[in-house]
Nucleic acid binder design. Structure first.
Length: 987
RNA sequence: GCCCCUGUGGCGGAAUGGUAGACGCGCUCGACUCAAAAUCGAGUUCCUAACCGGAGUGUCCGUUCGAGUCGGACCAGGGGCACCA
C-alpha cells in the first residue's frame, strides 16, 4: 500500500521547518477566538510537520488514485505567500516517472491573494524531495503506524482545522442587517455544572444540524449560546469546597465552552452571555422594576421548606423522604413574605395562546393546559350554625356542584383564617396544625401523605336544607393556594374524600350513578368519580352531570348563595429565593416608606464578592455593608431586599437578549423583532411546563407594557429524549461505572476484583447511578463528527437514546465510508439512471426528514445512498452523487464534509454551499410492485407498469398461480384494488 | 395521590389504514491477509432439517375487504408535579 501521507509529510517539512518552530511540540489547541484564526491553523501545521501521524488528515489523499492535494498554507516566516501542491502518485513503487507534482503559488497583495508563477525547477525540486523522503519513510515506518495513516480520515486534526477556518471566516456570526430571510434556532442554554454531558451533546447536535441545514438553504441563521449561570449547585460547591460560587461557575463556563467548541457547533459566540454577570442581570433588574411599576409584582406570604437544624430554606430537591438532605432533620413548612409575579393575570391568554402554537408537541401543550387548569364551577357559602370571631360563613369552590346532596363534611386548609382563629384558643388544633406543617411543600408529598383531619366545633349549614348540618374539619390535604382554601367533601365521588370519610366514619352517599337502577347500590372500595346521572338528589334526580351542574349554579345565583365561577389551578409565580447566587431583587425596604424600588440609575445592584458560606443561610443577610442603605424615597435608614430571583426569571428572557444586546438597555425592540420569535427551540421535556410557561408569561408581560410586539416567544418547540446507559451493580449493591466493568460473553465482571457484576436496567445517565459517559474522551477518540452522527442515529430524537460502544463505532465507520468515497472519486464519464433516481429520492427524503427534525430517518437515508453509490460503477452521475452525499451529510458531519468537499476539488467551504435540489419527476418509478392479498393476507407480489387501471390490475392478480390455487376454482366475492399498491381478493 | 408518555426481531428502531421489520448495531459464513485489524460479499423475526406453509408489533375485545396504525378495557415500564435546572 501507498504511504501517501508520509510523502506529503515530507513536503510540509520543507515548507515549514523554520527556526524556532520545531521546539514547540505542545502548541495549545485552545486559543482565544481572535487569535485562533491565524495562530490555530499554523500551530497545527507546525505540529503536523513534527508528527507524521497526526499530520495525515491535513491532506486529502486516496489509496486508489494516489492523488494528494495539500491545502493552502503559508510558511510562518513568509506570511505574504502561500502554496498549494497536488501530487499524483501513479504506482506503488514510487518510481520517479510515476510521480506528478503540480504546485500553485499565491502572494498577498493588499489583502487579496493573487496567483503567482511557479518555476518548473521548483516543481522538479519538490518532486525529488517528495520521492526521496517518501521512499525513505516507507522503509522505516513502523508497520502499524503506517497502516493507521493510510487513506483514513483523522478527525483529531481535521476537526480543529475546520473549526479554525469557520472561525476565521466568521461563518456563524448572525447579521441582523442581512437581506436574507431570517431563522432563529435555539437550544435551551446549559447550566454550567462543570463538564458537558451526553444530554448536552445530543441537544446541541440537533440544534446545530438544523442551524446548518437552514443556513445551506439560504437563510440568515441566529444560533447563539450562553450560560444559565445562577443556581444552587454553585452554592453547594462553595459550602463543600470553599470556592466562591462565581469562581466555580466561571471556571466551569470556560471548560464547557471549550468542550462545545471542540464539537464544531455552528454557534455565534459573539453573542455569548452568562446570567451571573451584571451586564445581564442588571438589565433583568430593570425589567423586574418595569413589571413592578406595571403592577405585575406584589408581595405576600408563602410556604417554604424549612430545615429546623440548619435554619435554612430548602428546595424541594433538598427534601428527601421529608427530611433535610444535609441535616437529616424532619422538614417543616414555614411562612415567609415573598415576591410574586402575577402570572394568573395571564392565565386565560396563556391557555388560549397554546392554540396558535402549531409547531409545539401536543404533549407539551396538554401539560401546560393541565397546569393552568381552567375549570368552570360554583363558588358558594356555607353559613355557620354559630358565628365565631366575626366569621359566619365558609366560602368553598367546587367543580362538581351536581354532587352537593352527597356532601358529608366541610374541610378547610390548615392555613385558612378560620383554622387560625380556632388554633388561637384550642391547643389541640394548634398541635394538629403543627403536625400538618411537617413534611415538604411539594405536591407529591402533600398528596401522598395520609389524609388527616381535625374536627372543629363549627357546624356548617347545607345551603339547600337549613336542617342539614355538616361537620367542619381542618384537613391536611386542602390547600389554601387553590380555590378558596375550603372544600365540601363528597366521599362517594372523590377518592380523597372517600379515604377521609372512611377514616372518620362519615356517611358515604351515592348521588351519581350510571343509570337510575343503580341508585341504591353502595359505593365500595373506592370513589366513583365519573359522570353519570344524578340520583338521591331531590330535584336533580335524573339529570345528567352537566345538566345538574347548570341547574345548581342557576339556583345558587337565583338564591344569592353562590355564583358560577371560572377557577384556575395556576398560582402566581413566587420568585423570591433565600440564596446568594442569584439576581438581587432591586428593592429597598424602608421602615417608613415600605418596599421602594431601587432608582434606575443605581442599577445594576451587584452581588458583593466578599461573602462566606461557612454558615447556613443566605450570606446576603449577614453582609451589613451591602444590606444597609439609605431609603431612596425618604433618605432614612433602610435595608436591601436580600432575597434573589428564581433562576427561571433569568431564563425567561435570555432569548431576547441574544437577539439584541445593547449596553444601555435590556434589548432593542426593533432589532429583537428582526429575529423573534424563535423559529425552533430545542430542549429537554423536563422544561415542558415551568420554564416554557414562565418564558411565555414574561414575553406577554413585556408585550402588555409595550416593550415588545409579540406574545409567543417560541414558534416551534421540540423536546428531545434523554441519553441513557446500562447500569451495573456489585455484589454489595453499590453502583459501578462502565469503565470498572468488563463483559465476558453474557456475563459482566468487575475488572479490579474479578467479582461478578449484575447488569441493571438502562437508565438516564446520572451521577448517582454512576452510568455516565464523559463525552470528551469519546470525542478525542472518535472525533466530533462520529459523536454527532451517533447522537442523531437510531433513536427518534424525542425518544431516549441508549449510549453504546457499538453505536459510536458504527458512526465512526460511516464517517470513514464517506471519506473513502470522496477521496477516491476520479473523473468519469457516463450516466446512471438508477443511481440518479436513488439520488433524487435521497435528496427529497433527507430534506423532508430534516425539516421535520427526524434526524434518525435522515441518517438511514444517507446510509442507503452511501450503499447505492458504493455499489454503482464509476460514472459522471456517481461523481455527482458523491458530491451531493457530502452536501447532505454536511449539517450532521461538518468537519468530514469540509474535508471531503476540498478533496473533491470543490472551491469554497461546504458551509457556504447551497442545499441540493431534487427533480420531482425523478422520484417516481415506472414499474411498481403490486401486493396481492387473498382475504387480507399477502400471497404474492407482481411487477406491473405504473398507472395500471383497476380492471387490468384485478385481471393480473387473478391470473396469479398462487391466487388460482387458493381460489380453487371459485369466483372471488369481491376484489379491492388500491392503484399501484395492492389487490385484495375476498374469497 | 394527580397528570402525561411509551410498548414492534438478540438490540436501537422503520412502516399516508394497504408487502411488518427500512437503516444501523450485534451475530454467522465467505473473500482479501503469513496473520490480525480494516475493508468487501452473502445471510440473519420465530416455528418447520429444507420446501410448502404457519405464527407474529405488551394482553384481551371491537371497527374494517384489510389494523403496528383507529376505538375500548387491561398489563408493564418511564417522566412531570410549582424553591433542581
Amino acid at each position: 500500500m501507498l504511504r501517501l501521507k508520509t510523502a506529503a509529510a515530507a513536503l510540509l517539512v520543507i515548507a515549514v521547518a523554520a527556526p524556532g518552530c520545531s521546539r514547540n511540540r505542545d502548541v495549545p489547541v485552545e486559543l482565544a477566538p481572535s487569535r485562533m484564526t491565524t495562530i490555530g491553523v499554523n500551530a497545527y501545521l507546525w505540529r503536523a510537520a513534527l508528527d507524521t501521524i497526526s499530520f495525515a488528515p491535513l491532506l486529502q489523499a486516496d489509496a486508489n488514485t494516489g492523488v494528494i492535494i495539500t491545502d493552502w498554507y503559508s510558511n510562518p516566516n513568509l506570511p505574504t505567500e502561500r502554496v498549494k501542491v497536488t501530487v499524483a502518485i501513479l504506482d506503488q513503487d514510487l518510481r520517479a516517472d510515476a510521480l506528478r507534482v503540480t504546485a500553485s503559488r499565491q502572494v498577498n497583495q493588499g489583502g487579496a491573494w493573487v496567483n503567482a508563477p511557479v518555476s518548473a525547477a521548483t516543481v522538479q525540486k519538490l518532486e525529488d524531495i517528495i520521492l526521496t523522503r517518501a521512499r525513505d519513510l516507507r522503509r522505516t515506518t513502523v508497520r502499524g503506524k503506517a497502516e493507521h495513516m493510510t487513506g483514513r480520515f483523522d478527525p483529531a486534526v481535521a476537526d480543529i482545522r475546520w473549526q479554525a477556518r469557520w472561525d476565521e471566516a466568521q461563518s456563524f456570526v448572525a447579521d441582523t442587517a442581512s437581506p436574507k430571510p431570517k431563522t432563529y434556532v435555539l437550544e435551551m442554554f446549559p447550566y454550567p455544572s462543570g463538564r458537558i454531558h451526553m444530554g448536552h451533546v445530543r441537544n446541541y447536535t440537533m440544534g446545530d444540524v438544523l442551524a446548518r441545514f437552514r443556513r445551506m438553504q439560504g437563510r440568515e441563521v441566529l444560533h447563539p449560546m450562553g450560560w444559565d449561570a445562577f443556581g444552587m449547585p454553585a452554592e453547594n460547591a462553595a459550602m463543600e469546597r470553599g470556592v466562591h460560587p462565581g469562581a466555580w461557575t466561571r471556571s466551569n463556563i470556560d471548560t464547557m465552552r471549550g468542550q462545545l467548541k471542540r464539537l464544531g457547533f455552528a454557534l455565534d459566540w459573539s453573542r455569548e452571555l452568562a446570567t451571573c454577570e451584571p451586564d445581564y442581570y442588571g438589565h433583568e433588574q430593570a425589567l423586574f422594576l418595569d413589571l413592578f411599576e406595571a403592577g405585575l409584582v406584589y408581595r405576600k406570604e408563602s410556604e417554604v421548606n424549612w430545615d429546623p437544624v440548619d435554619m435554612t430554606v430548602l428546595a424541594n430537591e433538598q427534601v428527601i423522604d421529608g427530611k433535610g438532605w444535609r441535616s437529616g432533620a424532619p422538614v417543616e413548612r414555614r411562612r415567609l413574605s415573598q415576591w410574586f409575579l402575577k402570572i394568573t393575570d395571564f392565565a386565560d391568554e396563556l391557555l388560549d395562546g397554546l392554540g396558535e402554537l402549531e409547531n409545539w408537541p401536543d404533549k407539551v401543550k396538554l401539560m401546560q393546559e393541565n397546569w393552568i387548569g381552567k375549570s368552570r364551577g360554583l363558588q358558594f357559602r356555607f353559613r355557620l350554625a354559630e358565628a365565631a370571631d366575626g366569621i359566619d360563613k365558609i366560602e368553598v369552590y367546587t367543580t362538581r356542584p351536581d354532587t352537593i346532596f352527597g356532601a358529608s363534611f366541610v374541610a378547610i386548609a390548615p392555613t385558612h383564617p378560620i383554622a387560625e382563629a380556632i388554633t388561637a384558643r384550642d391547643p389541640k388544633a394548634a398541635e394538629f396544625i403543627a403536625e400538618c406543617k411537617r413534611g415538604g411543600t411539594s405536591a407529591a408529598e402533600i398528596e401522598t401523605a395520609e389524609k388527616k383531619g381535625f374536627l372543629t366545633p363549627i357546624e356548617a349549614i347545607h345551603p339547600l336544607d337549613s336542617n342539614w348540618r355538616l361537620p367542619v374539619y381542618i384537613a391536611n390535604f386542602v390547600l389554601m393556594e387553590y380555590g378558596t382554601g375550603a372544600i365540601f367533601g363528597v366521599p362517594a365521588h372523590d377518592q380523597r374524600d372517600f379515604e377521609f370519610a372512611s377514616k372518620y366514619r362519615l356517611p358515604i352517599k351515592r348521588v351519581v350513578a350510571a343509570n337510575a337502577e343503580e341508585a341504591g347500590q353502595p359505593i365500595v372500595g373506592e370513589a366513583e368519580s365519573m359522570d353519570g346521572i344524578a340520583v338521591n338528589s331531590e330535584f336533580l334526580d335524573g339529570l345528567t352531570t352537566e345538566q345538574a351542574t347548570a341547574e345548581i349554579i342557576r339556583r345558587a345565583e337565583a338564591g344569592g348563595w353562590g355564583e358560577g365561577k371560572t377557577a384556575f389551578r395556576l398560582r402566581d409565580w413566587g420568585v423570591s429565593r433565600q440564596r446568594y447566587w442569584g439576581t438581587p431583587i432591586p428593592i429597598i425596604h424602608c421602615g417608613k416608606c415600605g418596599a421602594v424600588p431601587v432608582p434606575r440609575d443605581q442599577l445594576p445592584i451587584v452581588l458583593p464578592e466578599d461573602v462566606s458560606f461557612d454558615r447556613p443561610g443566605n450570606p446576603l443577610d449577614r453582609h451589613d455593608a451591602w444590606r444597609n442603605v439609605s431609603c431612596p424615597s425618604c433618605g432614612g435608614l433602610a435595608r436591601r431586599e436580600t432575597d434573589t430571583l428564581d433562576t427561571f426569571v433569568d431564563s425567561s428572557w435570555y432569548f431576547i437578549r441574544f437577539a439584541s444586546e445593547p449596553a444601555d438597555k435590556p434589548f432593542d425592540r426593533g432589532e429583537a423583532e428582526q429575529w423573534l420569535p424563535v423559529d425552533q427551540y430545542i430542549g429537554g421535556v423536563e422544561h415542558a411546563i415551568l420554564h416554557l410557561l414562565y418564558a411565555r408569561f414574561w414575553t406577554r408581560a413585556l408585550n402588555r407594557i409595550g416593550r415588545i410586539g409579540m406574545s409567543e416567544p417560541f414558534k416551534g418547540l421540540f423536546t428531545q429524549g434523554m441519553v441513557t446507559h446500562e447500569t451495573y451493580r456489585a455484589g454489595d449493591g453499590s453502583w459501578l461505572s462502565p469503565d470498572e466493568v468488563r463483559r465476558d460473553g453474557d456475563d459482566w465482571t468487575h475488572i479490579e476484583s474479578g467479582a461478578p457484576v449484575t447488569l441493571g436496567r438502562v437508565e438516564k445517565m446520572s451521577k448517582s447511578k454512576r452510568n455516565t459517559i464523559d463525552p470528551e474522551p469519546i470525542i478525542a477518540r472518535y472525533g466530533a463528527d462520529a459523536v454527532r452522527w451517533f447522537m442523531l442515529s437510531d433513536s427518534p430524537p424525542e425518544r431516549d437514546l441508549e449510549w453504546s460502544e457499538g453505536g459510536i463505532e458504527g458512526a465512526a465507520r460511516f464517517v470513514q465510508r464517506v471519506w473513502r468515497l470522496a477521496s477516491s472519486d476520479a473523473v468519469s464519464e457516463g450516466s446512471d439512471e438508477a443511481l440518479e433516481r436513488k439520488l433524487h429520492r435521497a435528496i427529497a427524503a433527507v430534506t423532508e426528514a430534516l425539516d421535520g427534525l427526524q434526524f434518525n430517518k435522515a441518517v438511514a437515508q444517507l446510509y442507503e445512498l452511501t450503499s447505492a453509490i458504493e455499489k454503482a460503477k464509476p460514472s459522471a452521475m456517481r461523481s455527482k452523487a458523491i458530491r451531493i452525499l457530502v452536501q447532505l451529510a454536511a449539517p450532521a458531519a461538518p468537519h468530514l464534509s469540509e474535508e471531503a468537499w476540498a478533496a473533491l476539488g470543490e472551491t469554497g467551504m461546504i458551509v457556504d454551499a447551497p442545499w441540493p435540489q431534487f427533480d420531482p419527476a425523478l422520484l417516481v418509478e415506472d414499474e411498481v410492485t403490486l401486493a396481492i392479498q387473498v382475504n387480507g393476507k399477502l400471497r404474492d407480489t407482481l411487477n406491473a407498469p405504473r398507472g395500471l387501471d383497476r380492471g387490468a390490475a384485478e385481471a393480473l392478480a387473478l391470473a396469479s398461480e398462487k391466487v388460482q390455487r387458493l381460489l380453487d376454482g371459485n369466483a372471488p366475492r369481491k376484489v379491492i384494488v388500491v392503484p399501484d399498491r395492492l389487490v385484495n381478493i375476498v374469497a
